[in-house]
């Protein structure tokens, strides 16, 4: 009995080619991307800053007797929010770049799961580039921002929308290729 299904005999090749082509595309994409593939895109891009109130860190830098971070103070300009911690090694590595960033646009820091004393020591050692510093000792604020590790840096535009998120320490090539262009665009 001759096998009748000559068309279905081609099915395996067709499916196989499909898998190969797409795998090839994925690999090609992997080779040409700069950030590690495991970084997930923030869900908050294009959305407003989370409404959750952020207490200011108690670092004896408080001049105006404020209690909470007020993001509205930075309306009408581009600014950055940087989640960091004294116990976080990559945060130390990115400290100089955050300082560079702070010279271009205002940067607000949020100390993640840290003690005020340790935050203070960290800032004394690496300098304080932040306009204001919030404290998220429980980690709940980070969850609201979709943060899953430190450090993470967000860019917010003048309308109060989050336009960019970088997870991991800020590296020079990311700074140059991703962040600076966004800043330049806004200033045009």
């Amino acid at each position: 009995m001759k096998s009748k299904f000559s068309i279905t005999n081609f099915l395996p090749v067709i499916l196989f080619s499909f898998i190969v082509i797409i795998s090839g595309l994925v690999l090609y994409k992997l080779r040409s991307s700069s950030s590690p593939p495991s970084n997930i895109t923030s869900q908050l891009i294009g959305k407003k800053i989370p409404e959750v109130p952020v207490k200011l860190a108690n670092l004896n830098l408080n001049i105006n007797n404020e209690e909470f971070l007020n993001f509205k103070n930075y309306q009408n300009q581009l600014f950055a929010v940087n989640f960091f911690a004294s116990w976080c090694a990559p945060c130390r590595v990115e400290a100089p770049l955050i300082e560079d960033l702070s010279k271009i646009i205002p940067v607000i820091g949020i100390a993640y799961k840290d003690k005020d004393i340790d935050t203070k020591k960290f800032l004394e050692e690496f300098g304080n580039p932040y306009k204001k510093i919030g404290a998220d000792s429980s980690g709940k604020i980070a969850i609201e921002w979709g943060v899953y590790g430190v450090p993470e840096t967000f860019l917010i535009n003048e309308k109060g929308d989050i336009i960019y998120r970088h997870a991991g320490p800020l590296l020079y090539n990311v700074f140059k290729s991703e962040i600076l262009p966004l800043i330049k665009n806004k200033n045009q």
């Binding site: 005999n9 081609f10 395996p12 090749v13 196989f16 080619s17 190969v20």
Partner: peptide, 8 residues
């Protein structure tokens, strides 16, 4: 791919 074409 080769053998699958051969099979087809």
């Amino acid at each position: 791919g080769g053998p699958l074409i051969l099979y087809a």
